[in-house]
Every structure is written in C-alpha cells, then in structure tokens.
Computed example of a mutant assay.
Amino acid sequence: MTPDQAAPRLHGLHQGRLVSGIPAFQLLWARLSGWHWLTRITALPGLHGLASAGYDHVLAPLLYRLHLRRRRQSSRSE
C-alpha cells in the first residue's frame, strides 16, 4: 500500500491482518489509557454501524481533504 492509498483512512495491523476505519480506531483506543471505553461503545451492534458510517462518509473524507490542503501548502512554501 502506498502512502497515497493509505492516506484517506486510518489503517492498522492486528495479528498480521490489515484493518482500517473504526476497527483500526478500536485497536488504537484499546491500547490507550483512558480511551478503552470508546472501544466498548463503538463495538455495540447499533453504534458500530453508525460509527462506521460516520467515519466513512463524514470524518475520513474531511480529514483527507485537510491532509491534502496541508500537503499543498507545505509544497508551496518549499
């Protein structure tokens, strides 16, 4: 996976398996002190789908656009 392919979503490796989106966040939150509760909440059946849809359709595209904007600005200043 190239950096440009990886940039639109959060990715992680778990037991040799590539995960992305909410499952990648869950892996991260499970290992951060004080964030375990988000793992449990986003694992609930109704909330998992809602969190995944919110990330896939709102948050990930927004973060990716901000990333692209920062890249353009940093390339102009060089």
Rank of each mutant, 00 (worst) to 15 (best):
S20N: 06
W29G: 04
A30C: 12
G16N: 01
F25I: 12
A30T: 12
M1H: 02
L32T: 13
D56I: 04
D4W: 08
S33M: 06
Y55M: 02
P8R: 06
L28S: 05
T42Q: 02
S52C: 13
S20Y: 07
P61I: 10
D4Q: 14
H67C: 07
S20V: 04
M1L: 05
H48D: 08
R72A: 14
H11Q: 12
H14T: 14
H11P: 02
G21N: 01
S20A: 10
R69T: 14
A6V: 13
R76I: 11
L44W: 04
L68A: 13
Q15A: 14
H57I: 11
L62Y: 15
A24F: 00
Y55N: 04
R70P: 05
T2N: 14
R71T: 12
H57T: 12
W35E: 00
L32Y: 00
W35P: 02
W29I: 12
I22R: 02
R72W: 00
R31C: 01
V58Y: 04
D56A: 14
R76F: 08
S77K: 09
A60F: 02
A53C: 09
L47V: 15
V19S: 04
M1D: 02
R40D: 01
T42E: 03
P8G: 08
H14I: 11
R71M: 11
L28A: 04
L50H: 07
R9S: 03
P45K: 11
A43D: 07
Q26V: 14
P45I: 10
L32N: 06
L63A: 02
S77T: 11
S33A: 12
I41C: 03
L10T: 08
L18N: 00
S20G: 02
P3E: 11
S74R: 13
L47W: 13
T39S: 04
A60L: 09
M1V: 12
P45D: 00
I22Y: 00
P45R: 14
R72T: 13
T2M: 06
Y55W: 11
W37N: 04
Q73A: 15
I22M: 10
P61L: 10
H36I: 01
L27P: 02
R9D: 03
A53K: 13
H14K: 08
H14L: 15
P3M: 10
R76P: 02
H36Y: 06
S33Y: 06
D4H: 07
G21S: 08
W29C: 02
E78W: 02
P45Q: 05
R9K: 08
R70L: 13
S75E: 05
L18I: 15
H36E: 13
G16R: 01
A51N: 08
A53V: 12
T39H: 14
L10Y: 10
H67Q: 13
D56R: 15
V58D: 01
I41W: 07
R65L: 15
A6M: 06
L10V: 14
T42W: 06
S20L: 03
R76D: 08
L59V: 15
G12V: 08
D56G: 01
S20W: 09
R72Y: 00
G49E: 09
D4P: 01
S33E: 13
L63M: 10
L66Q: 15
G12I: 05
R70S: 08
S20Q: 14
H14W: 08
F25L: 15
R70E: 04
L62N: 00
